[in-house]
């Protein structure tokens, strides 16, 4: 979305116009859902729904441009994500039935295949699984949600320089992961397979 289009859509949403929300959702929902898929996995769509409800409740008070809106939106996303983490912690405290534990593939899981046909969902899941939490968030926000360094710094309440360092270290961590024994590069470039 560009300039005036965003401003029009935002203004429409702020007064409760349906088309305004449709336009915002069309442009921002993939980034939101992609990020959440890397963080809360199977609950991503539920959390995303909660995010958009909160957006609807709060959008009337938002002031700013598209970049500001993106940072504001992902601040909501992270808050909802943290709520989901807390909910899961409570559930785990109540029941430790292994069947109820969230499933996440091990980086060395032979069933996981990293190949050229890797879907976006798998790639996001891999990033979320391989990287430490903060590095994973930074990489997902940069790559999946396409936020700028400054926007990520605002969302995570970090200095931009810190965001750059985290993203750099995330890239190196991913490279290290693929260089580990058991992870072969079946078809360079860009295609790897887990054997």
């Amino acid at each position: 979305m560009r300039g005036d289009d965003f401003a029009d859509a935002l203004a429409a949403a702020q007064v409760g116009e349906e088309w305004g929300f449709a336009a915002l959702y069309r442009d921002f929902a993939p980034a939101v859902l992609g990020f959440l898929r890397g963080r809360v996995d199977a609950d991503a769509e539920d959390v995303a729904s909660a995010v958009w409800l909160e957006v609807a409740r709060s959008v009337g008070r938002f002031t700013g441009d598209e970049s500001g809106f993106r940072a504001w939106l992902f601040t909501i996303v992270r808050r909802r994500m943290m709520n989901e983490y807390r909910r899961r912690s409570r559930d785990l405290a109540v029941s430790t039935d292994p069947a109820l534990l969230p499933m996440s593939p091990s980086p060395d899981d032979p069933e996981r295949t990293v190949v050229g046909e890797m879907s976006a969902t798998d790639a996001i899941a891999l990033i979320g699984t391989v990287l430490p939490e903060l590095q994973g968030e930074v990489i997902l926000l940069r790559v999946v949600s396409q936020l700028s360094v400054d926007e990520i710094a605002e969302v995570l309440d970090l200095a931009p320089g810190h965001v750059r360092v985290l993203s750099h270290r995330g890239l190196k961590a991913l490279a290290e992961h693929f260089s580990r024994p058991g992870v072969t590069h079946a078809a360079e470039p860009g295609i790897s397979e887990v054997t």
């Binding site: 890397g38 990293v114 976006a120 790639a123 996001i124 991913l174 360079e188 860009g190």
Partner: peptide, 12 residues
């Protein structure tokens, strides 16, 4: 970094 680039491209 080839595999990394592939993963990031897929994720985006």
């Amino acid at each position: 970094y080839g595999p990394v680039a592939a993963v990031l491209t897929a994720a985006s």
